[in-house]
Design a protein around this nucleic acid. Structure first.
Lengths: 107, 107
DNA sequence: TTGACACGAAACCATATGGTGTTATATCAT
DNA sequence: ATGATATAACACCATATGGTTTCGTGTCAA
């Protein structure tokens, strides 16, 4: 679908692809089973799977006339590492505290 | 640059925008200072900032004739939460162990 | 007040993205 | 062998994306 290689960040940018990942996290399945969860054609899902495959987040194994796709979550480590850098600027606890203080200052 | 609202996932999909976030994490700065770090026009950076602003990852404050942009990392929590779900399928420790085993099997 | 500076807005462009439909090919069941 | 099934491959389309250039406007400094 594109000339340039897709990375993990681009792969998870699309809501359909995130839902595909979630479905595959529950159970490996072929394209047609995946497609039944979406209001779009099998061809569209196939393209999303191609992008996810490029990012190495899924892999497909041909079994008879089916091709079973399954989740391959390791590349998400790159995302985790990227995110870890920003946690020095924010933590859930400190953020909540800050919001409380800002709300108090409003009156 | 678009009719649909951009979310955090789309915002961080672009390498330029990720670099903008990193730069702003070091120091708040106006558009022209940001632009000097990239091989593209000020207008292009302005569009990226608009997308980051839509995702509420940055905010700009007008100061005189400048507009100072600064990082607003809280929306990254959504990403962190999304990622947390997949950590049940994989952990750094187990991944490293698996890689070590695979390397050992190579000879 | 006259530039120079920082930015915003608009028009434009090439390519990417996300979808469609059609056709072809391999496999399984009868 | 035939037909149904599962998917791949291809051509096509509208819109989004990521960039450009040009022009307009508010602000600071001389």
């Amino acid at each position: 679908m594109s000339a340039v290689k897709h990375d993990v960040f681009q792969a998870i940018a699309d809501p359909t692809r995130r839902e595909v990942l979630r479905l595959l996290s529950e159970k490996e399945m072929p394209i047609s089973a995946l497609t039944s969860h979406f209001p779009m054609s099998r061809t569209a899902i196939a393209k999303h799977l191609a992008i996810l495959t490029e990012a190495e987040l899924v892999s497909g194994e041909k079994v008879g006339r089916e091709k079973i796709y399954r989740l391959h979550p390791e590349p998400l480590a790159e995302l985790k590492d990227w995110l870890a850098y920003y946690e020095q600027f924010w933590s859930n606890k400190l953020t909540k505290l800050k919001y409380v203080l800002e709300e108090n200052n409003e009156d």
